[in-house]
Computed example of a mutant assay.
Amino acid sequence: MTSRRQVSADLNSDLGAYVKAWRHRLAPDDHQAPRHRRRRRSNVTQEEIADVVGVSVVWYSNLERGVRANYSDAFLDAVTEALRLNRYERELMYLLAIGRMPAPALTGPDPGALDPALRHFVEGQRWATYVLDRYAHVVLHNEVCESYYPWLRTDPSYSRWLFTDADARRRLVNWESDWVAPLLTELRITRARHPQDTGIAALVDAWLETSPEVRGLWDDHAQPYPLRSRRGMRLSGDQQTTLVDVVTLTDPSVNDLQIVSLLPVAGEA
């Protein structure tokens, strides 16, 4: 039987091993601070990373020694940038260092970090297709998608548009039951699956405070909202209703990404 002390020791060991490995994979010429560039090194040093992050070598080296402490989000995010961590590595560092997930980036994850095969699949679809992360950010979409969701040109947050923008109420037929309620259900499930993710809780709280209608739907646990794959939309400048089948593919092993396609229903309105 594994003791709590052993689990804690394993987490400390993992934290140190991962942070050190991430530093060692960096190219020295890209991260050497100015005063260190006179001599060439095979690895980026702790001192160089500390210079970039703006902390003492001792404070940064705590991470590489596996010391779990009350590190600030600002510090961990600065380390993320200095070590050039991707989204998943950032989440792992947060969990190992302070025992919780980071808040989501306001701009969403870097689409460049997505699997090339997924990018090829999405961009190759002839119907509107996009990828949502667990925070309801659109992290990837094809060009066709912008005819349905023009807001994607400036803002990746699907939940912000859906919950707070008057354009969403105009475009989406049965806005409450067919569109808002399903996303709220997904957010409930995500929050339950990731109870340590403060970003999910903060996201839900923000939208509940912003929209009384969304708050009412969230609080009304008894109201049945059947999930309909066939839904109505109004395209830009079009008052007629276009029916679409909303097809969703999920892969929980890939950080809760959902691939969503909007398939027009031929011959119906």
Rank of each mutant, 00 (worst) to 15 (best):
T80A: 05
A21F: 07
R41H: 14
N142F: 00
N142I: 00
D219A: 15
H221P: 03
A27N: 06
T107G: 13
Y158R: 01
D167W: 01
N86K: 06
S159A: 15
S147W: 08
P109K: 12
A78M: 09
N86S: 04
S13K: 12
L227G: 07
H120D: 14
W161M: 00
A181P: 02
R193L: 05
E268V: 05
S8R: 15
P102Y: 01
L243G: 00
A17S: 11
P109S: 15
Y60I: 00
L76S: 06
R171Q: 12
A222R: 12
T80N: 07
S177K: 03
A269I: 11
T129D: 04
L76T: 05
A97S: 14
D178E: 13
L140C: 03
H31R: 13
P104S: 12
E268M: 11
S253V: 08
R40I: 14
P264S: 04
G199E: 04
S13W: 09
I189G: 06
M1I: 09
A27Q: 12
A117N: 08
H137A: 06
A9Q: 13
Q6N: 09
P116S: 07
T190N: 04
S159P: 07
R4T: 10
M93F: 04
P111R: 09
R65M: 12
L243H: 05
D110P: 02
R160V: 02
A113K: 05
D197V: 01
R231I: 10
P111E: 07
R41G: 10
V260A: 01
P109T: 12
E64T: 07
T190D: 01
S157M: 10
S236R: 06
E143F: 02
R4C: 02
L85G: 01
N142Q: 04
P34C: 07
A202I: 06
G108C: 07
A17G: 09
N12D: 15
V58Y: 06
A69W: 02
N12E: 15
A222D: 13
A202M: 09
T107I: 11
A192F: 08
L262Q: 00
L235H: 00
V214F: 02
L76H: 04
R35Q: 14
A201C: 04
L11P: 09
E213F: 09
S253Y: 08
L183Y: 01
T248E: 00
A136V: 04
V53A: 09
